[in-house]
Design a protein around this nucleic acid. Sequence first.
RNA 1: GGUCCCGUGGUGCAGUUUGGAGUGCACGCCGCCCUGUCAAGGCGGAGGUCGCGGGUUCAAAUCCCGUCGGGACCGCCA
Length: 579
Amino acid sequence: MTMRTHYCGELRSGDVGSEVTVCGWVDTRRVHSEHLAFIDLRDHTGIVQCVVDEKLDLRSEYVVAITGTVRTRFEGKSNEKLQTGEIEIGDCEVQVLSVAEPPPFPMHERTDVDENIRLRHRYVDLRKPRMQKNLRIRAKVNSAIRSAMEKQGFVEIETPMLIASTPEGARDFVVPSRLHPTNFYALPQSPQIFKQLCMVGGIDRYYQIARCLRDEDLRADRQFEFMQLDMEASFANQEDIINFVSEAIKDSTEAITGLRPDEIPHMTWNEAMERFGSDKPDTRFGMELVDLTEIFEGTDANVFKVDCVKGILYEGGSDALARNAIDALTEKCQSWGARGLAWFRVGDEGNLDGALTKFMSDDEIEGIHASLSAQPGDMILIIADKRRTVNHVLGLLRLEIGRPPVNSGELKYLWITEFPLFESVGDHGRPIPAHHPFTMPHLEDLEKLNSAQGEEYLEIRSQAYDLVLNGWELGSGSVRIHTPEIQSKIFEILGIGEVEANEKFGFLLDAFRYGAPPHAGFAFGIDRLAAILSGEENIREIIAFPKTQSGADPLTNAPTQLENNHLEELGLRLIPPST
RNA sequence: GGUCCCGUGGUGCAGUUUGGAGUGCACGCCGCCCUGUCAAGGCGGAGGUCGCGGGUUCAAAUCCCGUCGGGACCGCCA
């Protein structure tokens, strides 16, 4: 005889008359007397009302098994809020399996509980419907991804967690080696090198739902450890990869929402930066950046005598933004790197009202008015600076003012293509790679590799691409370099000599000498995807045991100190923290 | 490295601007009553290092300095 015959939330009118046993936690109780009490029993499927007609000491969160007969509720006594509201379990025999202290916070979800307290008692928090729902959505996403990849011919390969540290990229988490004192393993930031080695190894199509670790500051969308769909395919180009990944994204979205997303649109990196001031534009709302630079050519206003002037239109912003709110926005813009924020209220006559109008010509005023299609009551916000700064600051300002919650329900997937190969030029005039040094340049820009000087390097495009959802970067990938000629050229430009290249990436370069197929790949963050599909603004809500913003775990108290003998065995001695 | 917000019985809040007795609200908890509730109801009760430390003051939850914890963001995250 099994302990349980049915789940609480699945009993229906069709079960009336059957004797059932349900197991779970005591949710709310409504005790009328020793002759009548209603016990709501909860498991992950929901709640069922059990009627008890004897004196029982049942408290919140007691774990019980209840055996009884399913019956229709009395006329007019059904509860539409419950899926099981038509029925109840009567003639109950209650077996207490575990008693419980009162929960440390309310089990109902009408009030938000401090996250620190939730995490300290996560095992209780996980019982709530929200976490039950989110973790099950996450599991479905994982499952849909696996199916999608396998149906496209990808093979799941596991790669090591204890690997060699490489200097590039994020800060590594490291693990001391007991057998090799003074040496350390690094935990993988991603399986990047290994998946490329798999391509050389003839795997053809690799995927893994991989745990990645990066020792960088935590955010709402960033944890130390996170999961990625990591994939790589041989004899594949950018379009192939985008199709493979899009299929996994669409399948997992459909598995959760029931609706298959439309074809995911593409946008070049340059267009994204110019229109939205971000390489991960949130296209759920407009408020696009409008270039006003030409209007201010030959201007008398000193603030606009700069490389680039762009503005955004805040519809109805004239009333929405009081003077102190504008001042606060100005301070934010300054903290983001701008010198200031120029603002104009659009008056009833279509006139512009702002501190800077007295320095501006009529043509200039009319020009920004028309360019932004301003209407009375709107607010115009302008940043003037270097183009890069203008796009960056205005992009952040746009989000600050107009961004809907990430969980508004709408799902705007977007591919960003043609990322620059280099993100900036360093002190010695040498460019710094935007992605990693194995990223294939855009074929049309190969010639520029030989001729570029200084800032011109930043115009070289790559075959790197990102997937964006509602303004969150879900993931990125690229076509990889597989020929020694181009790889040498890139290393030369980056100032990485042969010796250094061999030190850092020797095993990969060695591998490429033995017959490397052209290959390309991608990785996207499953936590972020699952969070948005769950309607959550924070990935901690879809992780069973997450860390706080300071990287601590209130439940286990990690990180902790080590005993001296433990340190000794590892050949470690602590440097006391400086005071 | 930086900016901002929060910390008050078990939980969620108000009180802090303008210093005056740990004052208040809701939920929970404990006890009693109650045979159709479903956020049950009624009556009674317990429960506080106002995060911590220092300072100002006759007097600090309240003002100042520091610190710890939580959160949002910039930097960082190839």
